[in-house]
Design a protein around this nucleic acid. Structure first.
Length: 700
DNA sequence: TCAATCCGTATC
DNA sequence: ATACGGATTGAC
């Protein structure tokens, strides 16, 4: 965004771009403008959050409000101030009678806009998030408040919006009730939203559920109670579905969709409509987690296991965490939803903070497809073409039957680029370090010496599998992507289409086609697929990732939910051993059970969310300094540092990573310690930047 | 003894 | 960057 050359030399390179350069305008005409300025009569002090990404300057600075700016300088507005000899942008947080500051106090240079964008409520959210992640307030505020667009701000958003579009259709309570009736306590939950009273739930829909409509019903009920709702989804496909469902129930004028790719003007225009209280239902992707909805009644995160919900900019907040924080602070209802349940959501349930919203077993079964696992020693199909594609006989038969009935077939293949790891040679449980339970990896080939822990670096000479006792290890084979052409040959006569991250097919007509796709890019089919072949089992489950099992089930279920119920002949064939809990969870359609196991395992191994962790990555010198200076809470463990392999090692400097681990109860202290580390470094004008992330999603 | 200069620190 | 305070230096 901002050209690096325009940044002051003393500012560190990781700072985000500051908001649009305001014009200096009519000043300096009167020569000595400074001497003639008079402070405002009432509350002449403005507490300003300056837009500078330096951790040691993460606090407000006092400025004097000149008389002329008295009315414009309202709390929450954007201002421009002279700071350290430079003009910088900032936010006016509050007006005060006096200042504690001993030295001289400069006047506000100008009020950029009198729109109060950073309201007290939004500020409180940002503060809480900054504190949780050990980040600076301004970094979070930049994520929460989109860049200003003067023209969009000048337009009268309310008038333009409320006259357009069809009139709002009052939500029909009975229809919503019918949709939620299969779920235990579903009716009670709707009652709570209607009352309105704060209720928190973790929802797993039954397979094939029209989840966008169910979510829209929640939003409509909240809207009917005169409250606002924010629904956050991972991607544009989900956004379109939920937006459409909400518009259907509430009228398009009552709903606004927010996403980062709208363009600056439209993005700011819609955000303002929310901020000004014109629109009460927001559907959006990640950035919408901060949407300043008026009188919030409900927050929803759909598919919280999708890594798109993790913000890639510092301090890397996660949608689910932010919405949990907001629900907590603002006393609103919350729904954490998805076909699968994350360990984090399970923790919300087990701690009693949220209630499970799930259907009884007998109400799940009729909707689920029949799942057939096949092991590594599968029988290859007899058919010569299928043989060439190395397709198992079961998979081939299931697909052929589906195509014969005129139903399309979904084939899920793995994406490339997974890190190969080590696993038990007998039972394939990922190999873990005895000391810290980190993942073991071979340096070069397995014959080159003992494997080494990727977290703490200790070599493991005497490996013994924790679950079966075997002493042998094997490298996990990374699944290769079977091409559409290969499969096309196996199903001569069928149309083979592909859908992947780059080119996504939104929907496939109900015909005899084979759709080859990577996880997350599955097209929807009216009536459902006749069969799904999940061929990526080994590659997905063998990943050396904390979330391998959870993520695998998430991808499988995302595909399986698009398949017709078993009663209509729907079949899922999955390439993984039937004894694995993840496979069992798919067979029995038991996402909550899987989440219980997952959380229990993480508790046992000391992983998030059972423990809190902080990852610090940087040059070896920087990491050494951090280790030297950090003051960790009592009982904290230090794992590493270990070298981290760069995706491309072409001339990149070596980088290391260290992990700090504490019990959840010390999470706040850990965040504070990380904040102190950054403050020390920025105060020293350290140019060697370290990346600090709390509860990092990937630990390898 | 005191101004000129250097250095480190804060940035209102 | 710039502004400032305190320490250091060097000429009277």
């Amino acid at each position: 965004m901002t050209d690096p050359a325009s940044r002051p030399l003393w500012e560190l390179p990781h700072g985000q771009a500051s908001e649009g350069r305001a014009r200096s305008g009519n000043r300096a005409r009167s020569g000595r403008g400074r001497g003639t300025k008079q402070p405002a009569e009432h509350r002449p002090i403005a507490r300003v959050l300056v837009d500078v990404s330096l951790a040691h300057l993460d606090r407000t600075f006092d400025y004097r409000v000149p008389e002329q700016l008295d009315t414009a300088a309202a709390p929450g507005t954007r201002v421009r101030v002279r700071f350290a000899g430079q003009l910088v942008d900032g936010f006016l947080l509050e007006r005060a009678d006096s200042s504690e500051h001993e030295g001289r106090i400069a006047f506000l240079e100008r009020v950029t806009s009198s729109e109060p964008v950073l309201t007290n409520e939004l500020l409180a959210v940002c503060r809480a998030v900054a504190e949780r992640y050990g980040g600076t307030l301004i970094d979070v505020v930049r994520l929460a408040v989109p860049p200003r667009h003067a023209r969009a701000e000048a337009e009268s958003v309310p008038a333009a919006r409320s006259t357009a579009g069809p009139p709002a259709v009052p939500p029909d309570d009975r229809t919503a009730r019918a949709g939620w009736e299969p779920y235990r306590h579903g009716g009670n939950f709707l009652d709570a939203l209607a009352e309105p009273r704060a209720a928190r739930a973790v929802w797993q829909p039954v397979p094939g559920e029209d989840w966008p409509t169910r979510l829209a019903e929640l939003a409509a009920t909240t809207h009917g109670a005169g409250r606002g709702a924010v629904l956050v989804v991972p991607d544009h496909r989900a956004l379109a579905l939920v937006q459409e469902a909400c518009a259907r129930l509430l009228g398009s004028a009552a709903v606004v969709s927010l996403s980062a790719d709208l363009g600056p003007a439209e993005r700011y225009r819609r955000w303002l409509a929310v901020s000004r209280g014109v629109v009460r239902v927001v559907v959006g992707t990640r950035a919408a987690m901060f949407a300043p909805i008026a009188e919030a009644g409900l927050f929803v995160v759909w598919d919280d296991g999708d890594d798109l919900h993790a913000e890639p900019r510092a301090p890397y907040p996660h949608v689910r965490d932010v919405l949990v924080t907001r629900a907590h602070h603002e006393g609103t209802s919350l729904v954490v939803a998805g076909f699968t349940r994350t360990a984090e959501a399970q923790l919300l349930v087990e701690s009693g903070w949220a209630h499970p919203l799930v259907a009884e077993r007998e109400r799940v079964r009729p909707h689920a497809p029949r799942v057939t696992p096949f092991g590594e020693d599968f029988d290859v199909a007899r058919d010569p073409a299928a043989r060439a594609a190395r397709l198992p006989a079961v998979a081939f038969e299931a697909a052929r039957t589906a195509l014969g009935n005129g139903h399309p077939v979904l084939v899920q293949v793995p994406r490339r680029g997974y890190l190969p790891g080590l696993a038990c040679a007998a039972c394939r449980t990922p190999a873990r370090c005895r000391r810290c339970a980190g993942p073991l990896a071979a340096e070069g080939s397995l014959a080159d010496g003992p494997p080494v822990c990727r977290w703490c670096g200790s070599p493991e000479a005497g490996f013994r599998c924790a679950s079966c006792g075997t002493r042998r290890l094997r490298a996990v084979v990374v699944g290769s992507r079977r091409t559409a052409e290969e499969l096309g040959k196996a199903f001569a006569g069928a149309v083979v289409r592909t859908s992947d991250g780059r080119e996504t097919l939104p929907e496939v007509a109900h015909d005899s086609s084979v759709v080859v796709c990577t996880p997350g890019a599955e097209p929807v089919v009216p009536g459902g697929y006749g069969a799904a072949l999940l061929l990526d089992g080994w590659a997905l489950l063998g990943r050396q990732d904390l979330r391998a099992a959870e993520e695998t089930l998430r991808r499988w279920m995302a595909a399986a939910t698009l398949v017709r119920p078993a009663g209509d002949g729907g079949r899922v064939v999955v390439g993984a051993d039937s004894s694995l809990p993840t496979v069992q969870a798919l067979v029995r359609w038991a996402p909550a059970w899987h989440a219980e196991l997952e959380l229990a395992e993480r508790t046992e191994l000391g992983f998030p969310p059972a423990m809190r962790m902080a990852g610090v990555e940087g040059s070896p010198e920087a990491i050494a300094t951090v280790l030297d200076e950090v003051s960790l809470p009592a009982g904290a463990e230090v794992l590493g540092p270990v070298p981290v392999t760069e995706p491309d090692e072409q001339g990149h400097a070596r980088r290391e990573r260290v992990l700090f681990r504490v019990p959840r109860s010390a999470g706040r202290e850990l965040a504070t310690a990380m904040r102190a580390v950054s403050a020390l470094r920025t105060a020293r004008k350290e140019t060697d930047v370290v990346r600090i992330e709390l509860d990092p999603l990937t630990l390898v």
